[in-house]
Amino acid sequence: MKRTLPLILVFIFGIMGIVPYYIPHGGYQTLDNMVRNDFLRILSAFAIVLGLGSLMKVHIDKIKKHRENWPYSYVLIIGFVVSGFIGLFGGIEGNGMLPTSIASFKFDIETLYLNIIVPLGSTMFALLAFFMASASYRAFRVRSLESALLLSAAFIVMLGVIPLGDRISPHLPTFAQWIMDIPNVASKRGITFGIALGGLATSLKVILGIERSWLGGKE
């Protein structure tokens, strides 16, 4: 029961996912739409709640057991509770029951997003520019014909996509475009075929109950 029922369900819903593509019958399309809109969507919302619950559980455990860097877990939990409270009761547009401004100082969820999430998220990724520059200097070594090819293509593309490249030679952007159009597409398409065929095989194995790792646990 604990394994059989989920395997039967994955088979039934797997077939339901495939069929509408090949049978564009109005009645079946409506049923398919209902499955997605009224069922899958709500399940995904609960999955989000599960994810948030798990995150909180991990950090509450961390605080209780005084694991490494546990004081920062307070920052995460307080950040979550305060912003969640403001969002839930202050409303998305700041029109909920909770006031979200004091005089001209606003603290609605949109303001928190634009002034906390945006600078933090974008700066974390901006760090990568420095790491990439450092790695280019220390690790990008021409040791073989293959790495020489890689480096040459990289130089042509890097110069071809900046205005300076166009000034050096108008052929550079055209050549960079050609590299993208032909050798790049050829290699990526070969890889895409492999990934697509592997993905199809895995999907079929999941639907047919051969691949069961998603069940987790032995029971």
Partner: peptide, 16 residues
């Protein structure tokens, strides 16, 4: 880093 994860999930919860 921890503030980012906390507030981003609060935002997520609000819209959900």
């Amino acid at each position: 880093e921890h503030l980012f994860v906390g507030v981003a999930n609060g935002y997520f919860l609000t819209f959900t």
